[in-house]
């Protein structure tokens, strides 16, 4: 008989800028080695995963981490007292630090996580990427951080236009002129704060890899993907798995050198000359994780087993040429569901 675990998952925001919560849950529900009871942790009461069938067994609203880690952890403690959570899988960038910082508190409560260390999390920040590249020997586009508008006029001495203007968590725009940099700086800093990252634009094809490291230098699984259909937010609406051995080699090398623990997404630009530049390292499972599950690597299942301290054998292969295509659909819900979540914060 398979064990049954209670797993709490965040980011049920399956919008056109999706979090990974819903696809992670789909993977967990297809796990061969265990059954699950899913606790959905949501920030907003219109996150689509709340209303989708067969996603969460129970929903709890949680405060944004910006409310302070004490308030945040109090809420988790309350939910744990009701649900007896075995594992939490956070999927939202802005909450990761709080969860990583509280790893031992959660462990003492009996809740397992499988997250990168604070050091791993900090050194792969967009603003730290060039240093990361030097330290571990990977090609990274030249970049620098700016904190105010007066920094923009000097960019011409260090960059050739166009340049990428990026927020510290999300958003990236291609700017062809200093005027456009000003426009994007204002747009990004008002939403995500400073610093804003200016990155050299490398011409090529964007390719991404989802991977899971065991924290000891081993790659448990990795699947490369190329976006085939991109939304106006730059998100993949369709993608296909690749058979690019170089990408696999770089990923394994990175995980070995950093001893990466947990899920991750590596974003690359592959140039015409077959050079691979890492443009971002996301320290969490990406929203396209279900493609990896469909291609033969159930990484959410493997992550839960690692969190529970089980021995997990690395995946040996995946299907090349597997595709995913997203779709949108209207879910009809009753106001009473919305009311219940709004008034008592659980469902």
């Amino acid at each position: 008989m398979k064990p049954k675990y209670t797993i709490a998952v965040t980011s049920l925001n399956n919008t056109d800028n999706p979090g990974a919560g819903v696809p992670v849950i789909r993977g967990l529900r297809e796990a061969k080695s265990f059954d699950v009871r899913i606790i959905g942790l949501v920030y907003e009461n219109l996150e689509p995963g709340i209303y989708m069938e067969n996603v969460a067994d129970k929903i709890y609203q949680i405060p944004y981490p910006s409310a302070g880690s004490d308030v945040f952890m109090e809420r988790i403690e309350y939910i744990h007292s009701k649900e007896n959570i075995d594992v939490i899988i956070p999927n939202f960038d802005a909450e990761l630090f709080t969860f990583m910082k509280s790893e031992h508190v959660l462990k003492d409560m009996g809740i397992k996580t499988f997250l990168p260390t604070i050091k791993q999390f900090e050194e792969r920040h967009k603003s730290e990427l060039p240093e990361f590249g030097k330290k571990y020997g990977f090609d990274i586009p030249f970049s620098k951080t700016i904190t105010n508008l007066s920094d923009i006029k000097n960019l011409q001495y260090e960059f050739n236009y166009p340049v990428l203007v990026k927020g510290k968590f999300y958003d990236a725009y291609l700017a062809y002129t200093p005027e456009q940099v000003i426009e994007f700086f204002n747009k990004i800093s008002s939403k995500w704060g400073v610093p804003v990252i200016i990155q050299e634009f490398i011409k090529g094809t964007e390719v991404n890899v989802i991977a899971l490291g065991d924290g000891k230098g081993n790659t448990i699984g990795s699947v490369p993907m190329r976006k085939q259909y991109i939304t106006d937010k730059g998100k993949a609406w369709g993608g296909i798995t690749l058979g690019d051995k170089n990408l696999m080699k770089i990923t394994k090398d990175l995980i070995k050198k950093t001893k990466w623990k947990g899920g991750m997404e590596l974003e690359f630009i592959k140039t015409q000359e077959n050079k691979y530049y890492i443009i971002e390292i996301n320290p969490r499972i990406p929203a396209w994780v279900y493609l990896a599950v469909g291609a033969g690597q159930n990484l959410p299942e493997a992550l839960v087993k690692l969190a529970l301290g089980e021995n997990v054998e690395p995946f040996k292969s995946y299907d090349v040429g597997k595709m995913f295509v997203r779709y949108s659909q209207d879910i009809i819900a009753d106001i009473s569901v919305f009311e219940k979540l709004s008034m008592i914060g659980e469902l």
């Binding site: 190329r226 085939q228 296909i240 798995t241 690749l242 058979g243 690019d244 090349v320 040429g321």
Partner: peptide, 18 residues
């Protein structure tokens, strides 16, 4: 050698995804 050509004339390059 890793380029797949189907009987219908569909060509898939697994390296690039094209």
């Amino acid at each position: 050698n890793n380029i797949a050509v189907s009987e219908t004339g569909f060509v898939f390059d697994p390296n690039s995804g094209d």
